[in-house]
Design a protein around this nucleic acid. Structure first.
Lengths: 111, 111
DNA sequence: TTGATACATCGACAACCGTCGATACGTTGA
DNA sequence: TCAACGTATCGACGGTTGTCGATGTATCAA
């Protein structure tokens, strides 16, 4: 589930350009696995369309219909993958999308 | 793991455009889950870069370092998702990429 | 200080998934 | 008809993961 190595670099692995090595494939799969989850997709979707492009956990729990620990868990996974940023303000933790990160995944699938 | 409904349509769900519903999110997650696997990514990669844009199972087993049943399983998952096409020729089963299918997933991530 | 609020962490459980060996199926050639 | 080959299917096993309730931690208000 970690996002390190090749994908961290400026240029990204191209699935359809050259045969993927085992390590590259493992990395890409892990990166895609982060967004291959309905709860996390909805979180990205909510953050992308939120009022100020940000939201706290309390605002995300109810629309998802999941418990607070579960939402917190998914946000942590997204943050570790670099797909969202976390900022503590008072007792609230606000999360913002990092669009460039999703772009890397998208561009890995260009023919 | 199935790829039906919205994703089958001409236009596809846009994760970052509007808040995803539960059903849409489930579908997108399933579709992404198909390619969120190192073996399947390498299969797509191998098919994309193969000599005649196609390959039989016997050609794919060795480069992946997996057993024949396992490779067959992954190809079946890819085929059910519409990402590859299967064509029986004699005793060989040839597989080809369906690039438009990957494009749908890619375009679901546009900002 | 105390209580309330927002969030993170922990431990546990059920469900899912990738993998394999064994085996069945279909095609080809002798 | 028979044997060999390429694939698909089956059953089983181990590891991973999404989910929750319970609990811990930090911040703010009174």
């Amino acid at each position: 589930m970690k996002l390190v190595g090749v994908i961290t670099e400026e240029c990204c692995p191209q699935v359809l350009r050259a045969p993927l090595g085992a390590a590259e494939a493992e990395e890409m799969a892990a990166a895609l696995g982060v967004i291959a989850d309905p709860a996390r997709l909805r979180l990205l979707s909510l953050l992308a369309t939120a009022e100020d492009r940000e939201a706290c956990v309390c605002d995300l729990t109810e629309p998802l219909g999941l418990s607070q620990p579960t939402v917190s868990h998914h946000l942590r996974v997204l943050a570790e993958a670099g797909l969202v940023e976390r900022e503590q303000r008072g007792r609230w933790a606000f999360f913002r999308l990092v669009p460039e990160r999703l772009a890397i995944l998208r561009e890995a699938l260009v023919p």
